[in-house]
Structures are given as structure tokens and as C-alpha cells.
Computed example of a mutant assay.
Amino acid sequence: MKKVFMLSIIACFLMALEIGTIPKRVVLEKDKGGTIDGSPFDTASMKGKVYLVIYSDPDKRDLNEPFFEKVKAKNFDRNRYTSIAIINMAATWIPNFLLNAILKAKQKKYPYTVYVKDNKKVLVHAWQLPDNDQVVMIFDQNGRVQYIGHGKLSQKEQERALHILEELINESH
């Protein structure tokens, strides 16, 4: 247990994302990825609203489902809030045709979420995110990181993240 805890702490320090900073700009397009419809995705576009960004290994897609359901239940104002799910397509053995079917099902369940594919682990390298895991990030309306959590969020971390989301959304009007 201590070893897992220490590895989690070390992994947090290795992340290039720091609270209060604007992360390095990344564009996912062509063979690197993009949105489900094939359009490019530019992280610089994450401004003007509060963003909940999930970077996930497809094998971990349901890891924080209870948290996502809590967020969905809040029915946040879409003029002030957007959610983005970035899928680490290279982190799994699941074939792309099956992943695409899973993403389409998720899109139906969460119609206001923007789904993005990272085909080459671009964000793992650019932002030094943990690979083969799920990372939950919250960005303020200026594009600054306000929360980072990874792995299965504890009840306490879910409450903390939800509180940060609510505060940022309330501040944004």
C-alpha cells in the first residue's frame, strides 16, 4: 500500500501540468488524432469556459463513472462549461473499429462531451501524463489548470473536484 501511494506521489510530480499554469499547446490532427468526426483538436481552444478534461486509456474508461454521473447530474450551464474526453488510443489492445463503437455509445450517453482521439500518445509526452491510466483535469476559463487527479478518484477527491468545478463555473458569469 505504501509503495502504491509513493508511486502516485512520484507520478504527480512527473506531470508537466501544474496547478495555475497554462499547459503546452498541442494539436491532434491527421495521424496523431483529432475529434471523432475527423476534425483537428487544438488544446489552445480550451478558453472562455470551464473545461473538465478526461485523458483516458480505453481500458480504464469506466474507472470514474460515478464521478462523471455526479457531474452530469449537476446539469451545468453549457455556455460556461464543456467536457472533453481524450482517448489514448495507443494504450490498449482493443481494435480501433471497436473503440469507435464504444466512443459512439459514450457520445450518446454524454451528448455534450467532445470526444477526441490521441492516436500516438501525444499528450502523454507533451504534458507528461501517466500512460495506461485515467487523468481528470479541470481548466479555468483562461485555460489554466485548476485540478489534476488520476486513477480511481476517492470519494473525497470526487467531492473536491466537483467543488472546484462548481466554484469556477459560478465565477465565470
Rank of each mutant, 00 (worst) to 15 (best):
M1S: 14
M1E: 13
K2W: 11
K2A: 14
L7E: 15
L7V: 07
S8M: 11
I9L: 14
I10L: 15
C12P: 00
C12T: 12
F13P: 00
F13W: 12
F13M: 14
M15S: 14
E18P: 00
I22W: 00
R25G: 01
V27F: 02
E29V: 03
E29T: 09
K30C: 01
D31N: 11
T35P: 01
I36A: 09
I36R: 01
G38Q: 06
G38F: 05
T43E: 00
T43V: 04
T43A: 03
A44G: 07
A44L: 06
S45R: 09
S45D: 11
K47E: 03
K47A: 04
K47N: 03
G48T: 07
V50Q: 04
V50E: 03
Y51I: 04
L52S: 10
Y55M: 05
Y55T: 08
S56Q: 10
D57T: 09
L63D: 07
N64Y: 05
N64G: 06
N64W: 04
N64T: 07
N64E: 08
P66W: 07
P66S: 08
F67W: 12
F68S: 04
K72V: 08
K72N: 09
K72R: 14
A73D: 14
N75F: 02
N75H: 13
D77M: 01
R78F: 03
R78Y: 03
N79Y: 04
Y81V: 05
Y81N: 02
A85Q: 06
A85K: 08
A85P: 00
I86R: 02
I87Q: 02
I87W: 05
I87A: 03
N88Y: 07
A90Y: 03
T92V: 09
T92R: 06
W93R: 11
W93K: 13
I94E: 02
F97I: 12
L98A: 12
L99C: 12
I102L: 10
L103G: 05
K104P: 02
A105F: 07
K106V: 10
Q107R: 13
Y112S: 09
V114C: 03
V114T: 15
Y115W: 15
K117L: 13
K117P: 09
K117Y: 11
D118S: 07
D118R: 08
K120L: 13
K120A: 09
V122D: 02
V124R: 12
A126H: 09
W127L: 06
Q128V: 09
L129T: 11
D131A: 15
D133E: 14
V135T: 15
V135I: 15
V135S: 03
V136H: 01
V136S: 12
V136D: 10
I138R: 10
I138A: 07
F139I: 10
F139L: 15
N142F: 06
G143E: 01
R144E: 14
R144K: 15
Q146R: 15
Y147W: 12
I148N: 02
G149H: 02
G151P: 10
K152C: 00
S154N: 07
K156F: 09
E159N: 14
A161M: 13
I164M: 06
E167K: 15
S172F: 01
H173A: 14
H173L: 15
H173S: 15
